[in-house]
Simulated assay, not measured.
Amino acid sequence: MIDFRSDTVTKPTPAMRAAMAKAEVGDDVYGDDPTVNRLQDMAADMFGFDSALFVSSGTQANLLALMAHCERGDEYLCGQQAHNYKFEGGGAAVLGSIQPQPLPNQMDGSILLSDIEAAIKPDDIHFARTRLLSLENTIGGKVLSQDYLAKAQTLAFNRGLKIHLDGARVANAAVAQGIAIADITQYFDSVSICLSKGLCAPIGSILLGDERLIAKAIRWRKMLGGGMRQAGIIAAAATLAITDQVERLADDHDNAKRLAMLLTQVDEIDVDVEQVQTNMVFAKLADNINPKRLADALFTKGILISASQQLRLVTHNDISKQDITTFVQQLKHAIVSVK
């Protein structure tokens, strides 16, 4: 299948499978899995933090960060489209008793600094205590500028807030700008990085922070059932994700641009090529095209998309240039068949 639904569908590379097969393992809850420990030490060093924690998912990494930064009754500020507000089951509120304060995301994915400033609550018993600003980069495939991150960090510092990055696709943001991941993570007190999206690991995310935050996160991870045993098997693949797969993301970005350009040739598709910054293409179907019928028609040709009037098409390691050409050809046929 040619699968455009997400970069979460990537399969581990042959090198990852080989590394997993021969990984040295121990019990990670006891802290004695050597492969996990090496991954955590390497990630902390690469991305400029004191400590790192290997966890099962990006959702868990974000939740652990929120719960480590905030106490019950505290509040975090985030974007209306933030993954840790909109797509993570309300975990911060349900499990952490932490109140989210969502703010409008601008077209470029940012949150207006003036909106952030205005949302910070005064020190008053009537209000939740604003403790944390959470940003996401990339967000909707868009890259937050370095200048914006620097200003957001300064605002947070001046107002006594900590600042967290949901960096699920921060590697894409770095590659798109031609900079190192550490150039982005330097602006944050904590960062989550997903290794199982464009970086191709089968499982896992890294949470980065200082020693105190990671110590709290380890305790919360155990309480939430996230302690892992012989996790070196998956940490071996995760290690290759951050050493071998980052620069390759440029190919995904090029393929996304190529896909968007080809879609401009389809009358029933509206796409803005200039909005494609990384590995995501957003395209609007004409109103007379039923997205469910279109997805079903493409499925019969070995192509998977998420059925929606607003298509999100994601390029990744398992999609080639030829796959993109094949998809657009089959899309044209499928549109004719479902009209």
Results as ranks from 00 to 15, higher is better:
28 D>N: 14
123 D>P: 00
58 G>L: 11
103 L>G: 09
124 D>E: 05
90 G>K: 00
320 S>E: 10
27 D>L: 04
243 T>Q: 11
103 L>A: 11
37 N>E: 13
130 T>A: 07
207 L>S: 08
127 F>H: 15
9 V>H: 09
109 G>H: 05
138 T>F: 02
330 Q>W: 02
191 V>E: 10
265 Q>W: 01
156 A>L: 05
93 A>N: 02
189 D>M: 04
108 D>F: 10
152 A>F: 04
184 I>T: 10
237 A>F: 01
228 M>A: 14
56 S>R: 15
221 R>I: 01
109 G>D: 10
289 I>L: 13
129 R>T: 11
339 K>P: 00
316 H>C: 07
63 L>F: 01
96 G>S: 03
65 A>K: 02
174 A>C: 11
151 K>T: 08
4 F>G: 06
104 P>T: 09
58 G>E: 15
100 P>A: 03
182 A>W: 00
47 F>N: 08
317 N>P: 01
154 T>M: 11
48 G>E: 05
10 T>E: 08
196 S>G: 02
173 A>W: 06
119 A>K: 08
2 I>T: 10
216 K>V: 01
257 K>D: 01
202 P>S: 13
33 D>F: 03
239 T>D: 01
139 I>L: 13
197 K>R: 14
34 P>L: 12
61 A>N: 05
244 D>V: 01
288 N>K: 14
288 N>L: 05
116 I>L: 09
229 R>F: 01
207 L>G: 04
311 L>C: 11
213 L>T: 06
324 I>E: 01
216 K>W: 00
29 V>Q: 07
233 I>Q: 08
285 L>N: 12
53 L>P: 02
220 W>Y: 14
222 K>R: 14
111 I>K: 09
162 K>L: 06
212 R>Q: 12
294 L>P: 05
7 D>H: 14
61 A>D: 08
